[in-house]
Computed example of a mutant assay.
Amino acid sequence: MKVHDFYFDLPEELIAQYPLEDRSNSRLLRLNKDTGEIDHGVFKHIVKYLESGDTMVLNDTRVLPARLIGEKEGSGGKIEFLLLKRIEGDIWETLAKPGKKAIPGKRFSFGHGKLTAEILEVKEDGNRIIKFYYDGIFEQVLGELGQMPLPPYIKAALEDKERYQTVYSKESGSAAAPTAGLHFTKELLKEIEDKGVNIVYLTLHVGLGTFRPVKVENIEQHNMHAEHYELSEESARIINETKKKGGRIIAVGTTSCRTLETIGNNEGEVKAQSGWTDIFIYPGYKFKIVDALITNFHLPESTLIMLVSALAGQENIMKAYNMAVKEKYRFFSFGDAMFIN
């Protein structure tokens, strides 16, 4: 398939710049993947589409305030680092801007010396390997000095860092939020559980490769970035029991979906494990675990719109997206939601 098969025209004013005051008050477009039928509602009413015995799988990763702005020691030139992943201890892989200042041996300071960094290596792709120096606990220092790494299409400042976290976020390590989960409140999760729906968690630390454009014409030639995941014994047990009893597995977000499909075998079973996934899901893929998906509205020609097209059909998805534009749904990270069932 061609990249352009997943293009749609999106007016810039439909890109959400702020989260809603009430997380669960986002609009919800429901798409029946078998019939193509579409209806509209409010996210807080999603419980009516759920059934006792279903299992909902959420990604409990927590976004690091991974954007650090500092200065070069000595000259004072400004530098910005974006933490991508921890290599080991205080050594991280990062993006640096401007890169010409970030050469091996150079040191940088943040927060008037509360945190310093030394460039150890420049990788072939231009990413920098750096080592941090500080007193105390790194996460606390980062929490004080770092900013949320909002996607480039969000121009507005975020006053409350927690609005770019899910209410159930727990395991720190992401460079971006699993945004489908931003619609849930604790009250809505309890209402879902009260209906007899199982709620289980996995962890996939979202990398910035999520926003990397597909630069090849034939999508089969695209290479996905790798992200680290973990699934517990308890979550695996509940997922497997649900499948055996004929219940649905509902993934919350493409990150949960990719993790489940990475771990699942051809018999529709999962095992507790951790590892790295670079799975690329696009039309033609046969789902092993996921039956339904809660997701946001994604960028044109992105790997994420290709994933949802694999689940619901490319024609159904493009029809739904064009309708969402016509109905002025809010798009991307702080936007509205879609339920594919």
Results as ranks from 00 to 15, higher is better:
Ile137Gln: 13
Tyr168Pro: 06
Pro151Phe: 08
Glu171Val: 14
Pro151Val: 03
Glu144Met: 06
Glu144Trp: 00
Lys170His: 14
Lys155Tyr: 12
Phe138Cys: 07
Gln165Ser: 03
Gln140Tyr: 09
Leu158Lys: 05
Ser169Gly: 13
Phe184Asp: 01
Pro152Glu: 13
Ser169Tyr: 09
Glu144Ile: 04
Asp160Thr: 10
Arg163Val: 01
Tyr168Asp: 12
Glu159Lys: 15
Leu145Lys: 09
Gly143Leu: 04
Thr179Trp: 05
Leu158Thr: 00
Lys161Asp: 14
His183Val: 00
Gln140Asp: 15
Tyr153Pro: 00
Pro178Phe: 02
Lys170Leu: 13
Glu159Arg: 14
Ser172Arg: 15
Pro151Thr: 01
Glu139Ile: 11
Glu159Cys: 00
Gly181Cys: 04
Leu182Ile: 02
Glu139Asp: 15
Gly136Ser: 06
Glu159Ala: 13
His183Trp: 00
Ala175Asn: 08
Leu142Gly: 03
Gly136Met: 04
Phe184Arg: 01
Leu158Trp: 01
Lys161Cys: 02
Phe138Arg: 00
Ile154Arg: 07
Thr166Ile: 05
Val167Ile: 15
Gly173His: 12
Gly173Ile: 05
Lys170Ile: 03
Pro151Leu: 06
Leu150Asn: 01
Ala156Met: 10
Leu142Met: 11
His183Glu: 04
Val141Ala: 03
Glu159His: 12
Asp160Cys: 08
Met148Arg: 11
Thr179Asp: 03
Glu159Tyr: 05
Tyr153Met: 04
Gln147Phe: 10
Ala156Arg: 14
Gln140Thr: 13
Glu159Asn: 13
